[in-house]
């Protein structure tokens, strides 16, 4: 099938087993397809050699954009477009703008980060995200290999590796 792949995966009961399995796989020069865990595991990024996420840079940019939007918009409205005196204060009353500026900073920052995250990860409405196993989102830790082009011997040796490192369940799924 075009674009589909066969994935061999093993489920572990404990995150320590998973981390040790990853370390062993790297030592054996096995090509890991992906790792799935029900919660963020400390040290996993480091072991897998993933670079630091750049999402927070996007978050800062969105936040700064929110600050500017709120502050400049209010400044324009209250000095040019529709100046009104509130409580004897000057038109351009900076302290009164601060709470709304703060709110819009937070709003832009978090909504922007959510949209960026979903876009980058290919998630969100309409996206096709096959799950290998239901319990990966509950209490199992999954290590997956892409075996689309592997021979039976290679698959057998990977199966041996998975059960040898403590995987309690093995399976092959086409996604």
């Amino acid at each position: 099938m075009e674009g589909h792949k066969d994935v061999l995966f093993g489920l572990y009961d404990d995150e320590d087993d998973l981390i040790h399995a990853i370390q062993k796989a790297q030592k054996d020069h096995l090509d890991i397809h992906d790792v799935f865990t029900p919660f963020p595991v400390h040290g996993l990024d480091e072991v897998m050699g993933l670079s630091e996420s750049r999402l927070h840079i996007a978050g800062f940019v969105y936040g700064a954009l929110g600050t500017l939007t709120a502050f400049l918009f209010m400044s324009w409205v209250f000095t040019r477009d529709w100046p009104i005196i509130f409580g004897g204060k000057p038109y351009w009353s900076v302290p009164a703008f601060i709470p709304i500026t703060f709110e819009l900073t937070v709003l832009f920052s978090c909504v922007g980060m959510v949209i960026t995250y979903y876009t980058v990860c290919g998630m969100g409405p309409g996206a096709d995200n096959p799950t290998l196993h239901d319990r990966i989102t509950d209490d199992k830790f999954c290590l997956a290999f892409n075996v689309s082009d592997s021979s039976k011997e290679e698959i057998d040796s990977l199966k041996g590796f998975l059960s040898g490192t403590g995987a309690t369940e093995l399976n092959i799924k086409t996604i």
Binding site: G87, G88, K89, P95, A96, I98, P99
Partner: peptide, 12 residues
């Protein structure tokens, strides 16, 4: 710091 200032500034 800001809340202390702003509430007093606003109520005047």
């Amino acid at each position: 710091w800001f809340s202390q200032y702003m509430l007093i500034w606003y109520s005047n």
